[in-house]
Design a protein around this nucleic acid. Structure first.
Lengths: 105, 105
DNA sequence: TGGTGACATCGAAACATGCTGATGTCACCC
DNA sequence: GGGTGACATCAGCATGTTTCGATGTCACCA
């Protein structure tokens, strides 16, 4: 099995969905792009907290920013999410094939 | 922060991919089913550590067990992983649609 | 039936992560 | 130019997670 470095990057990116607030942010951004203040009022979280999660999502490449005047708009990068989905689909296919294969002890 | 139950379950499950050792275990199980001892020798991790991660994966429904004599075989549940992949694919589609929609401040 | 080997469970310690208040930067408007 | 509001960064803490050694259970075999 191939374990290229990108795989671990992908895993870390998928892992980001694990936090409830981050998952909430992703879902909100999936409906329309928003600036930080919208995310704050939608989630009720503090500004610094939102900003922190957005940084993680940005670093993982799941989200991109567009500064617009004094506001900063955030939107999801559908390609990145589609990549993760593809990775998981491949994994599922591989797992389905491996179901009946087993290694004796 | 309210989230529908299904959402949090799926997110938590995807989140499990975040840990490197767990991701490694999942990848190994994607090639063939294995008992704990195989996973131990492949990863170099301790038996208790492996056992702990397998429990998390099992609780999330990503993995199922089959006790066979004194060994316990583990295998992935391809349907579960395919479900996650589908969820991500839908999210990507939704995000693609939302790209040009934005909420003025 | 007693020994051994596979696996699960249980704290405790090490470690990572999320949240917060304080503070910095920068665009905008008076 | 000074005030304000949007957002980023930082350092500390609180909390959760990973890992570990010790221990328990259970199947197998001599």
């Amino acid at each position: 099995m191939l374990m290229s470095p990108e795989d671990s990057v992908a895993d870390a990116a998928v892992g980001l969905f694990g936090d409830p607030l981050r998952a909430r942010i992703v879902r909100l951004l999936a409906t329309e792009q928003m600036c930080t203040c919208h995310l704050i009022e939608q989630t009720g979280a503090r500004q610094t907290t939102i900003s922190h999660h957005l940084r993680l999502l940005r670093r993982a490449g799941l989200v991109e920013t567009e500064p617009r005047g004094r506001y900063t708009y955030y939107r999801l990068r559908p390609e990145a999410i589609a990549d993760l989905a593809d990775g998981l689909r491949d994994l599922a296919a591989q797992a389905a094939e491996a179901r009946d294969r087993y290694r004796p002890c």
